[in-house]
Every structure is written in C-alpha cells, then in structure tokens.
Computed example of a mutant assay.
Amino acid sequence: MTVGECPLFPLLCSSCRTPLPAALCNSDEPILCRHCSKQLQVELFPAILKPLHEGGSVGLQVTEGEASCFYHPDKQAIKICSSCGRFICSLCEIDLAGRCLCPVCLEQGRQNEQLSELVTKRTLHDSIALNTALLPLLIWPVTLITAPIALYLALTAWRKPTSILPRTRIRIVFALLFSVLQIIAWAALGVFLFQKWSS
C-alpha cells in the first residue's frame, strides 16, 4: 500500500489531529507525527486496510426444522445467550470472557454495570467518605453536620465495590475513625457545656 490515508477513515494524531500515513501503522517502532513530532504507536487490524467488497448476507439462512435467531428470524441460530437464553445467530453472537451474550443483554449489563469486564470507571465511595470527614476540619464548626454524614458514607461505602484497580479499604477505615472521633468530640463538648451551664 502506498503512503496515504486509510481508505475507510483518516488516522489522526492524538495530539494535533493531523492525518497520519497508513503505511506507517503496525510498525514495530514508534513513529513521529510530521506536524507536532509526538511519538505514536499505531496498531490497526489488517482488514481495515483492505478495500471493501460487496458481500452476501451474514449468517446461514434458516431451514425448516431448525431454530432461528430471536433478532433475525431468517437466520439460523447457532448459539444460546448465556444470560437470557434466547437463540442467536452468528451476527448477534458476542463472546465476552467465555460467555456468549446477545446484544440486548450486553447493553443491559453495560448500563447496569453488572458486567465487570465492561466497567471502565467506578465511583470511589471510600475517597468521598474520607474527604467528607477530613476537609470540613478546615472550618471545624461544620464538622457538627459533616461528621455524621461521613460516618454514614463510610458505612455504606464498605458494601459497595471498590476501584477497578486493586486498592485496600484503608480510606474507609480512616473515614470511620475520623468521623467517630469528631462525633465523640462534639458529644464531649456538649456534655461539658451542659455541665457548665447547669452549675
């Protein structure tokens, strides 16, 4: 293939968005963008560099006595979705970590964050609880309100999934410790002021 752009869409530099020559892709060595000199490593599937061909319909046509795809009644079913049990054709079959899923179950799992293989971000409840316990110390009277909130957040964070990257529960432990200490301090101050006023 001669030096030029990818036939399907231009390959752009991630920094300056300048088109990159497709011939420089899939090389063992990093390449430099001609415009901004950013070092890049571009890997393309070989099929993307091939010209498009007109083709027939995807999947086998269903014949009498065979199961058809739930989503494409004219296509022969080749697998069963491991989540919903629907028959699906080769066009609908999605292999995810050894499980066969249909497109609907894959999308529902992504939206409900039930497929850990597809989760790309997660709320760090432990960090929120720790920040709620520590940051109000800068304006200490606010801790009268934020300490119980931090305690609640830390207790609920204990049952929620942690970060996608491995991390300990030390933030939750510190959030529990600091919030309980603040509540004890406020209770002690309240007892002290009550005794002072009552005497």
Rank of each mutant, 00 (worst) to 15 (best):
A23N: 06
L24Q: 05
C25T: 15
D28Q: 13
E29T: 13
E29G: 05
E29Y: 08
C33D: 03
R34C: 10
C36Q: 09
L40N: 03
Q41W: 03
P46C: 03
P46E: 06
L49S: 09
H53P: 00
H53K: 14
H53A: 12
G55N: 07
G55D: 05
G56C: 03
V58H: 10
V58Y: 08
G59T: 08
L60A: 15
E64T: 09
E64F: 07
G65Y: 00
E66K: 12
E66T: 11
S68N: 13
F70P: 01
I78M: 14
I80K: 05
S82E: 11
S82C: 07
S83M: 01
C84K: 04
G85I: 01
G85P: 02
G85N: 01
G85S: 03
R86G: 00
R86T: 07
I88H: 00
C89G: 05
E93G: 01
I94W: 01
A97D: 12
G98L: 06
R99L: 02
R99E: 07
C102L: 02
L106K: 04
S116H: 12
V119Y: 00
L124W: 03
H125K: 07
S127A: 15
N131W: 10
L134P: 08
L134I: 15
I139G: 13
W140I: 13
W140P: 12
T143M: 11
T143D: 02
A147E: 01
I149P: 02
I149D: 02
